[in-house]
Design a protein around this nucleic acid. Structure first.
Lengths: 140, 140
DNA sequence: TTCTAATTTGCAACGATTGCTAATTAGCAA
DNA sequence: TTGCTAATTAGCAATCGTTGCAAATTAGAA
């Protein structure tokens, strides 16, 4: 996702308005590696701008996604997550704390069973324990 | 997932009862490669047993999943799907017709960015066009 | 400054799923 | 075969995440 300044220009160029709500969300998502849900982003945004609505957060995230500035990811159950990293990558989800981190694969694996299926896209979700949750395991 | 006969034994052994509803669902899921949702399975079941409730379908699918007889898979938006194939495999989802097929990978790819994450499980969702939807593309 | 289309907000509605409860029933034991 | 009781079913309400809608507000071009 581009910087808040570039997004301001891009939005205006697309005939979209740049409101204070949107500017705040631009800055909150820029370089955000937390893979937030709409709701968690709303919680953060509300602190800086009390009264902003969850509906607006959803709307702006949808706009950014349609412009290709965000990717949406679904990791098992729960809400949709938004990722400002739109490069080709995958995700690892910690089963303990729920944190999501980016993962890159070096080469695509060979497949069996494709049977004429034309692959356009692939997304891998890894599950396990993140480094900090692995470290905090008490001996049992 | 095991055969309806084996499941009957397994359910009783686990202190669970084998009702007509459950027997029907056992047979409908056995060797079912359609990756149905609870709702689509309910539609099929209702034809053979009018009056069966969606609640019971959910309950039985949950029971089977907890016993390790089914896997649940989520492919992008939409409802949860149930897969009687519990072997280690992945899925390809057709963007046109929504069909889901099983895919097997020969070897796990090398990863970057794991950063101490201990992987316990991986699931790949491929998206694209299935064979029949590729074949039925009209020239444009 | 004016005007208007875009935006925001709040709330209703939606789809998927689960919680709850009364009525029913599988299946063990006598 | 009959009784008993815990498990199950069905139906409905409630939940969660998300989207549709409409009235009031506002960005930003003219």
């Amino acid at each position: 996702m581009r910087s808040p300044e570039e997004l301001t220009t891009a939005f205006r160029a697309a005939g979209l308005k740049v409101t204070p709500q949107r500017q705040l969300l631009f800055t909150l998502m820029h370089n955000n590696s937390a893979h937030p849900t709409a709701d968690s982003l709303y919680a953060v945004a509300s602190k800086q701008m009390p009264g902003i609505s969850l509906r607006t957060v959803y709307q702006t995230l949808t706009d950014l996604t349609e412009m290709g500035e965000l990717r949406t990811i679904e990791v098992g159950a729960g809400a949709m997550r938004f990722d400002p990293n739109v490069s080709d990558h995958h995700h690892a989800v910690c089963d303990v704390c729920g944190a999501v981190q980016d993962v890159y694969v070096n080469q695509a694996p060979e497949l069996r069973g494709l049977d004429g299926f034309a692959v356009a896209d692939a997304h891998i979700v890894y599950r396990g324990r993140c480094a900090s949750c692995s470290a905090s395991v008490k001996r049992s």
